[in-house]
Amino acid sequence: MLRPTFLGVLTALVAVVPSTLAADCTREGLLTAARSYLAAQISGKTTELKLSSNFTYQQNNKVSDIAKGLLSTSYKIDLNRSTADLVACASYTMWISSSGSKPYVVGTQIRHRNNNTAEIAMIDTIAATTGDLFFNAKDTQKYIAAEDWTSLPAASRPSRDVLKKAGDAYLDMWTDAKAADTIPWGTNCERVEGSRLTKPCGGQLPHGGSTKPNGMRRYVIDEEMGSVDVLCQFDSLGNMPDSHEIRITDGKVKYVHTITVNGK
């Protein structure tokens, strides 16, 4: 009987180790990082965040110093919700502070490199406050708090491709006259633009008219929640930092949320 040599055993171990060390981007890891972001926002202490060595902070589409951004100030958060994208290894967190002296409605995408959810590579925030488009934090909170955001059954979850196409088609409505008709609108869908509620959300839609497409699109797609969030620059109506979130249930658009900052 032949015994494996030490070198042979070592070679076998080396072959196995890389696969065992390969990290997976997990839902719990993404949501844990999102919770750490919310905790830092509540405390106003960015030192509580575990940031990568080449971390980037972006606020309203501009790379900024995190120590001078929104996270450097403590805010009471009255409502929040997060979704997770295991393919992009990113999360989207919406939070609302409506009870303080300076109210905010915020949409933030958090990104991780190499599937490492233990470290945050980028915090990308769209932050709307008093004076921004249709802004009223208390009304926005009231509408969104009443929504149903339970996880979808596996058999009825929209695909990643369907969700991305819906997000892109929505942002293309201002430049493409046919885009609105490609979106599967639900008869009971609700659209919250800033603090304006429209029901059903498939009515009163643009059908082209602008020559400037909405650019700088960054996606967080969560099939389990049936949602896509797109951070972008709303160029069709001006240089406006923007977040558009869409939820699809039973194959139809159920919710649309927009956070739009006046061009600054």
Rank of each mutant, 00 (worst) to 15 (best):
Thr93Ile: 09
Leu38Ser: 12
Met1Leu: 07
Phe55Thr: 02
Ser227His: 04
Ala40Tyr: 11
Cys89Gln: 02
Leu237Ala: 10
Asp250Pro: 00
Ile246Arg: 00
Pro184Ile: 05
Gln141Asp: 02
Asn54Leu: 05
Cys201Pro: 01
Thr117Gly: 07
Leu21Pro: 11
Ala127Trp: 03
Asp168Tyr: 09
Lys142Asn: 05
Leu49Arg: 04
Met94Gln: 01
Thr258Ser: 10
Val261Phe: 01
Thr175Cys: 03
Asn61Lys: 15
Thr198Ala: 11
Leu30Tyr: 05
Pro206Gln: 06
Glu28Ile: 14
Ser19Trp: 14
Gly208Ile: 09
Asp172Thr: 09
Leu51Trp: 03
Leu86Phe: 13
Asn116Ile: 02
Thr20Asn: 14
Tyr104Cys: 01
Leu2Gln: 13
Lys212Cys: 06
Leu231Pro: 03
Lys76Asp: 06
Asp65Gly: 12
Thr211Gln: 12
Lys165Cys: 03
Thr5Gly: 07
Lys62Cys: 12
Ser53Phe: 04
Glu223Lys: 07
Val192His: 04
Phe135Asn: 02
Asp172Tyr: 07
Asp181Gln: 11
Arg217Met: 08
Val9Trp: 01
Leu79Trp: 14
His112Ile: 04
Asp78Tyr: 09
Glu147Asp: 06
Gln59Asp: 15
Pro4Lys: 08
Arg191Lys: 12
Thr26Ile: 12
Ile144Pro: 00
Gly203Met: 12
Ala154Glu: 06
Thr150Glu: 00
Ser72Phe: 09
Asn60Gln: 13
Ala169Cys: 07
Val253Trp: 02
Lys212Phe: 08
Asp148Asn: 09
Gly44Cys: 12
Ser91Arg: 02
Gly209Glu: 12
Arg160Met: 06
His244Ile: 02
Tyr92Met: 06
Leu79Thr: 05
Val17Asp: 00
Lys254Met: 10
Val63Gly: 10
Arg81Leu: 09
Thr260Leu: 13
Thr187Pro: 10
Ala33Cys: 10
Val256Ala: 01
Ser151Glu: 10
His257Asn: 10
Gly209Ser: 12
Ile77Asp: 08
Thr26Ala: 09
Ala34Ile: 07
Leu205Ala: 05
Leu133His: 07
Gly215Ala: 13
Gln59Pro: 15
Pro206Thr: 08
Ala12Phe: 11
Glu245Gly: 03
Trp149Pro: 06
Ile248Ser: 00
Asp78Ile: 10
Ala169Gln: 07
Glu245Ser: 09
Lys252Asp: 06
Pro184Val: 06
Leu38Gln: 14
Met240Arg: 08
Arg35Asn: 15
Cys232Leu: 13
Lys212Gly: 04
Ile144Asp: 00
Thr150Pro: 01
Ser99Phe: 06
Ala177Asp: 14
Ala88Gln: 09
Met225Thr: 03
Lys102Asp: 11
Ser98Trp: 11
Cys201Ser: 07
Met225Leu: 08
Lys264Cys: 14
Lys212Thr: 14
Glu147Pro: 00
Met216Ile: 00
Leu79Asn: 08
Ile42Ser: 14
Ile110Gln: 02
Glu48Gln: 14
Leu21Cys: 08
Met94Lys: 00
Arg247His: 04
Thr108Arg: 08
Asp181Cys: 11
Ser82Glu: 03
Ile126Gly: 01
Trp185Gln: 06
Gly29Arg: 05
Ala127Leu: 13
Gly29Tyr: 04
Ala23Pro: 12
